[in-house]
Simulated scan of single mutants.
Amino acid sequence: MFGYRVPQADQAMLISGGKSSGTSPFRVVTGHGAFIVPFFRKAQFLTLALYEAEVEEPCVTKQGIQLSVRAVIAAKVGNDSESIVNAGQRFLSDQGQMATLTGRIFAGHLRSIIGSMTVEEIITERQKLAGEVLDGSKGEMAKMGLIVDALQIQNIDDGGLGYIKAMAAPHNARIQQAAQIAQASANQAAAEAEQQSRRAQAQFERDTAVARAGYAAETQSAEAKAAQAGPLAEAQSQQEVINAQTDLAQRQAQLRQQQLVAEVVKPAEAEAERVRILARADAEKTQIQAAAAASSNRVALDQALIAQLPQIVEKAANGLAGANVTMLNGSDGLSEVVSGLASQGLAIFEALRGDVGSAKKTQDSTGETKAIETRDDHADHDDDGSSNTAWPKA
Rank of each mutant, 00 (worst) to 15 (best):
I242N: 12
D247E: 13
V325K: 03
R274G: 08
M167L: 15
Q257V: 04
R353A: 09
Q287V: 13
A43K: 01
Q188D: 10
S68I: 12
P267Q: 09
Q95D: 10
A371I: 12
N297H: 08
N187W: 02
D282G: 03
A235E: 08
M1Y: 09
S197V: 01
A359Q: 14
Q183P: 01
G96W: 03
A323K: 13
R27W: 02
I153E: 06
L67K: 04
T219N: 10
N155I: 07
S237C: 02
H381Q: 03
N86V: 00
A99R: 08
Q303H: 10
R111N: 06
L134T: 03
K76P: 00
M98S: 10
K128R: 15
Y163F: 11
K285L: 11
D380N: 10
G385Q: 05
L309H: 11
D302L: 15
K138P: 00
Q201A: 11
I123L: 15
A53Q: 06
Q196A: 13
D10R: 07
A317W: 11
L129R: 01
S197G: 06
F2M: 10
F349K: 13
A394M: 08
R199I: 11
N79M: 04
K370G: 11
A191V: 08
V264K: 07
Y4D: 01
P170I: 05
T124K: 13
F26L: 01
